[in-house]
Design a protein around this nucleic acid. Sequence first.
DNA 1: AAGTCGGGGTT
DNA 2: AACCCAGACTT
Length: 367
Amino acid sequence: MHSKKIIMRKRAEYKSFQSSRFRKVLLSWYKAQKRDLPWRKTKDPYKILISEIMLQQTQVETVIPYYKAWMKKFNTIKKLATASLDEALMLWEGMGYYSRARNLHLTAQEIEKNYNGKIPDSFENLIHLPGIGKYTAGAIASIAFNKPVPAIDANVRRVLTRLLCLSPSSSKDKTFWELALNLMVTASPSEFNQAMMEIGALVCIAKNPRCPNCPVRSHCNAYLKGMQNRYPAIRKPKKVEEIEVVLGIIFNDTMVYIQKRPPQGLFAGLWEFPGGKVEPGERPEKALHRELKEELGEKVRIISNGKAIRHKYTRFKVLLYPFICSAQKRFSPGSRKGEFRWILQKELKNYPFPTANRKIIQSLRFP
DNA sequence: AAGTCGGGGTT
DNA sequence: AACCCAGACTT
């Protein structure tokens, strides 16, 4: 087996790497230095599950307030399973990757139905639930149930890559999995997996790792070669395109029009104001009329334009032009598939919006 | 294997 | 401005 060969070769190549000593030092460091995080005060599998979904591609400091607010409202899986998706999305607003909330809601309902409300304790059962992949299944099984399964996240990959000077060609999922499993052996899986992530988050960080403060630096081949900054290899740069977008906040008397986005794709399940991209060379006002005609089949009158908002995403930047508009009647856009509503201005706070829309809601002076 | 899916923090 | 983050899912 290829990855086994790597493990063997690495062990033979680097006599300094003694896994039992490494494990002991790592775990004692973790015990002394670990952060006091809300989800570390409990062994409730439901709370571990929520934290792990929130922590997908999201930093600890960002998650903490969302986690606390979530547990105030949904402190049991039954409460989540019987709530509406909109209620869950409200608590998720601003955290991004909104499909996580949808999948989490589905997972709660599935656990209620098929597992009598008990979170499954095995990797094999967990990984079949929506929104739970290899990392999260391993994290829940190990952290909540102390099952000997690795939890390979970006931290663990980086730590292992530096420890063993893994080349990009040997940086495969299977390699990391077997290396971690081998290193774990006698340790508590819960403690070991969290320790590996913690040292990646606090010491073996992506840029300028804090090697002088690292308790396992004498085991680290990248450090011993002075090459810690060359691991992991640099990724391909992604280009960021810039687009201009218009949107209409359409009033009829005191009521404002909002619509729901599809259950999949960008901002899945969130509410929004209608609008769309400005074409090259097009005036924003013209773009708004064109988009509303295409999307709603309606003509509106522009009352005023709000302050333009700049917003950055991972793959693109947007310049958002909001327009306050008025409609002759409370139209029902027959051409649209999704849900829509006419609501009072003060009700806007009860619907989950993308962050850029929320910024506009807060910055506008309504008529 | 490569794209899609957010937003905030760091450097 | 570029990079990063307790990844999952689709194509």
